[in-house]
């Protein structure tokens, strides 16, 4: 059952976490972004609508901690031609809803919509779709255990993109 987030006491924390993630991706600053994720955190961008599995079917991205660590180092490497071009992004997140809440631990699943305006290689692009964040609570607050990015055009041909959305 979907509960409107304003009914939940931790709304501010959760919104802030999503906004903070978006601001790290806007810059982009992957060194700080990765710290928002748990050690077993994953990032998934399916290549098909309603895709159920990240490992047995192609995805645009399915990164665990190892791949995130490699990606963040690659992102700033001076000898990666695709990174020669400055990239700037502007993320807008809206329609934030709590889809699931485990009242005993505070762990929850948050759904939202996003638009990301991205300027890369001399052109401005618009990405959009929905996010699903699985958040987990520890003593320092919430972290991201899993993020799923469903692009509305995930089945269409895509151009090179060097950053998480």
């Amino acid at each position: 059952m979907t509960t409107i987030i304003s009914a939940n006491p931790s709304i501010r924390d959760i919104e802030q976490l999503l906004y903070q993630e978006a601001s790290f991706l806007d810059k982009p600053d992957l060194d700080r972004w990765i710290e928002l994720y748990t050690e077993d955190g994953t990032y998934w961008m399916p290549a098909r609508e309603d895709q159920e599995d990240p490992e047995f079917e192609l995805s645009h991205i399915y990164d665990d901690h190892v791949m995130m660590e490699i990606r963040r180092r690659n992102f700033v490497h001076p000898r990666a031609a695709s990174k020669d071009y400055k990239i700037r992004c502007s993320h807008i997140i809206s329609n934030i809803q709590m889809a699931e809440l485990d009242a005993s631990t505070g762990d929850c699943t948050i759904t939202s919509n996003f638009h990301a305006l991205v300027n890369y290689m001399g052109e401005q692009r618009m990405y959009g779709g929905s996010y699903t964040h699985r958040l987990t609570k520890d003593k320092d607050g919430y972290k991201i255990r899993h993020k799923r990015v469903d692009l509305i055009n995930c089945e269409e041909p895509q151009k090179s993109m060097i950053i998480y959305l």
């Binding site: 290549a47 098909r48 047995f56 079917e57 192609l58 645009h60 269409e156 041909p157 895509q158 151009k159």
Partner: peptide, 9 residues
């Protein structure tokens, strides 16, 4: 074949 193709411009 598994799933749909990924297409890259």
């Amino acid at each position: 074949v598994i799933g749909k193709p990924m297409r890259y411009v």
